[in-house]
Design a protein around this nucleic acid. Structure first.
Lengths: 196, 196
DNA sequence: TCCATACTATGACAAGCGTCATATCGAGCA
DNA sequence: TGCTCGATATGACGCTTGTCATAGTATGGA
């Protein structure tokens, strides 16, 4: 957790994100977040006067940025970027996570949305921002590959939706199969959209 | 809630499912389930000696059966069944729900998976059973329309994954747009799989 | 009438939660 | 040396949670 280079505040945000991924928003307790961050308990209320909502909000901001950077990192990995390749790149990150670290941790956006999207929590705005920022990043990459502007947003929505569902399914089955399935099945559709 | 025709036990299972959908497994309290069911509190431990896990498990069983019946109900609604039509039928149920009752309630399978899929809760088996039962039901419908057996399962996985993700996104945005998007974008891919 | 069984009722338990109040520490600066 | 202020420490508050224990009531058969 980069405990040497990160500040206690950063470590709390990171720990919150990881706990969110594993258990969801409701089951994530600030005492445990603080303990895992190796941070002083008294510092929580110092850095996060907005309480749990603020902490969860910042964790989602962090997660959203991470997902956006992941999408934006794709073109540098290949000489011949394609929409299907982008999707495979996004999914590959999750396959690697599950293979290396098991299926304990899912997507923090989905976990928080499942818990809180129905109500009017202050966190809702952060969930939405993370999701739409991610969508815009993916759409921007698609557009760069020649997908028409009007289509890129729709395909980004489809890609992220399918990815989220496959992440859930993979965790439940403890098997990356569903992730591979959506990549395989979606590939021809995605690539056919890039041609003029 | 059919309070006249349903037994207290059935009402508790149903109420648990609805609360699961809105808040997730962790935030769903036994006391509230019982209260909403209009059931006596003492009856809970009588009907569910297995505690909360048993109640949540049965709620998921109920939800899985509901999703399977929804998929199986498609052929009766049209003279010319197609894979894309099946997917549209599945999504239509969610659009109607959101339009009529708002975005408070999502999918109970996703909500429970987000909370518990990482651990080794006794509920995990029920989540998995609900998901795979649903998948098999969808695959069976696809096969009936001429989708090759080897492909039907994969397409069912893709359809359910995309649907789950779109449900989440729709709730977060409080807008059925993402549901419509995945139907539109997936339609040609799905129908192209039905031809020999 | 008696009794077994199904169901209902209620109170208590330990544990956890988010939050708050307050005290102490430790540098930097006048 | 004093003062200030960011950061840390600790204890307590009221509340909710899942579960358990222990009653009471009702019903139906012998």
């Amino acid at each position: 957790m980069q405990s040497e280079t990160w500040s206690p505040r950063e470590r709390m945000v990171y720990s919150a994100a990881q706990l969110l991924r594993a258990r969801g928003a409701t089951a994530t307790g600030i005492r445990e977040v603080v303990a895992r961050a190796g941070a002083p308990r008294g510092s929580f209320q110092h850095y996060f006067p907005g309480g749990k909502d603020q902490l969860v909000g910042e964790a989602l901001e962090w997660a959203g940025g991470f997902a956006e950077r992941r999408a934006a990192s794709y073109p540098a990995t290949t000489d011949d970027p394609t929409p299907a390749g982008l999707f495979a790149h996004m999914v590959e990150g999750w396959k690697a996570e599950f293979t290396a670290r098991g299926f304990e941790r899912g997507c923090p956006v989905m976990a928080t949305a499942a818990d809180l999207a129905g109500g009017d929590s202050a966190v809702n705005g952060h969930v939405r921002a993370a999701l739409e920022g991610w969508g815009h990043a993916v759409a921007a990459e698609l557009a760069r590959m020649g997908v028409p502007a009007g289509r890129a947003g729709a395909l980004a929505t489809l890609m992220i939706s399918a990815l989220e569902g496959a992440i859930m399914w993979a965790r439940v089955r403890r098997d990356v199969g569903p992730l591979e399935t959506v990549v395989t099945e979606l590939a021809p559709l995605l690539d056919s959209a890039a041609r003029p």
